[in-house]
Design a protein around this nucleic acid. Sequence first.
DNA 1: CACTGCAGCGAGAAGTAG
DNA 2: CTACTTCTCGCTGCAGTG
Length: 284
Amino acid sequence: MPRAFLVKRRTPPPIVRTWDELPDEERADTYIPDSIDCILQYVTEDSLSNSSSAGDPVGDSPERASSDSSLCNGSITTPTNLHQCGDALSPEAEGSSQENAEEQALDLKRSVVRSKMKVTTGTLSEDIYSCDICGKGFRLQRMLNRHLKCHNQVKRHLCTFCGKGFNDTFDLKRHVRTHTGIRPYKCDICNKAFTQRCSLESHLKKIHGVQQGYAYKQRRDKLFVCEECGYTGPSQEDLYLHVYNSHPGSAFLKKTTKKLAALLQHKITSVLQVSPTNEEEIKQ
DNA sequence: CACTGCAGCGAGAAGTAG
DNA sequence: CTACTTCTCGCTGCAGTG
């Protein structure tokens, strides 16, 4: 989508998301700041004076998040539980010993960074890789490795808009959409748009009574989203061509896999063979 | 209270290194 | 080819809002 279609706001307050004023059907077309310098400046100044305010993105920094007080939410899994039985705690079991669970939860507060953890149902195999910090067990080592990142106080992926850190690239990408206002998931019925698919599906179910025909955990059709303008395409190829044409300077083009890049390069070249001068531009 | 926004995390898919 | 890493997804639950 050409930038000419984007709605640019005059001096938008960087942290306060003003795109809320936009109708949902236009949210994907929200202006994306060309420079984030003003935002970073705002964040720095604001964080110094107002870091404790609720909802303040900087106040919700990784350090703070790591000591999140929402440690007890009823779904806590204690190391003891995990070690004693490989199976998940049933809701009934949790309910029958609520006092005990609360005590355990308090103990856990001291040792576990974050407790919003659930126990995977099903029987665990003999080879369990357990987390030294919280005792959670995993069937695969890579799952443990992945899990260990959540105990790391240093978040690898920082939001350039607010500085908040994430362990996961996708979590960051998803978070950034709250700043850019890009909402790729649109309701076909009322045009309301959402940043996350689950929000759309929840909306469809509750508002329109539309039940998704997917099984539990079944993967949906992948939606390829241009994080520059909110354009969505049915394939990676489609998205690549969009970015190539509309956002030539995008980092997305550099991150594209060699395989796809080669494939698309061939396509673009063959399409543009009519004009050899353009081919030279592509090679650059 | 219903609905939406947001984020943590388990897990599978895809990519990459050796 | 295998092991490892990165990317991406869906599920879940809490917080905010009207």
